[in-house]
Amino acid sequence: MTGVEVSLRGLHRRYGSVVALDGLDLTLAPGELVALLGPSGCGKTTTLRLLAGLEDADGGQVTVAGADITHVPSNKRGMGMVFQAYSLFPHMTVRDNVAFGLKLRRAARAERDRRAMEMLELVGLTEQAGRYAHQLSGGQQQRVALARALAISPKVLLLDEPLSALDAKVRAQLRDEIRRIQLEVGTTTLFVTHDQEEALAIADRVGVMRDGRIEQLGTPTDIYSRPATSFVAEFVGLTNRLHGTVAAGSVNVRGCVLPLADPATPDGQATVLVRPEAVTVVPSGPLTGTVIAVTFLGASSRITVDLGDTTVLAQLPTSEATALPAGSAVALTIRPDPVLVA
């Protein structure tokens, strides 16, 4: 089965005086996995629930494969939903949980069981088919929830922070597995998370949300390397905030002249956002300071440098960082990538 196009247009939703969604627009291409990323309360869950039909929109339109489903009840939408945690039916075995959607559709027992086992194979849990939810680990429970959602061959797969209740190692593993399975079945998928690393790792495109709207929608590379706004830049990845002076379309930060992402930035004093990767170690350079901390990240490392009046983060290959233990004097420069002003 191949994916279908999903489109949300001008969605509005308020709870009392709280505006949860404020004219949200989002289109998912057939088979695409879009991750919704944003701070707590920005409306991610609300977006997902509106798409699932678990919540009604105050305004706007939802279409799936070109058909307007804005007023279709959720049990007629054919969407697969995976919740944050504890959504398996505790009185049913794993197999019966997965087969439940087909039971509701009055499929024959043999057909249900066949499909359930097929789905359990997909998530690697055939041996646990006869167990109950309380006999499974958190990660296994979420796999079963995924299998249950996929068993009905949903038009769209919806996941609301499905990994947030798991510990770090299982989280990364299951994340990759969800992606593998999603590519295999080809279902258009909306994945909600507040973990930027997760969003960047799993998605075809990431939608960064703020106050009930999409602030930027783009590939992980776009979002990370070419953030459209200072909000996105600061929310995604670590960012140095450095003082600078804007003049004639470029900005001078401690002697480094950097191009501006937005040439229309007015002249004067400004706070400039610089990624740690853009800060590099040089034999001698405009910025000098003392290393105060080294964080090992694997192939690369991050050093914290005290410049006297402020600190700056720099990311560099671990091989270089090992030569710079805490206390070393170091000279830095900033790579002239286009920068955003806060």
Binding site: A52, G53, L54, N75, G78, M81, F83, F89, L104, I152
Partner: peptide, 8 residues
């Protein structure tokens, strides 16, 4: 909600 989205 799981029952509902599964078509129940």
């Amino acid at each position: 909600e799981a029952t509902e989205t599964l078509g129940g």
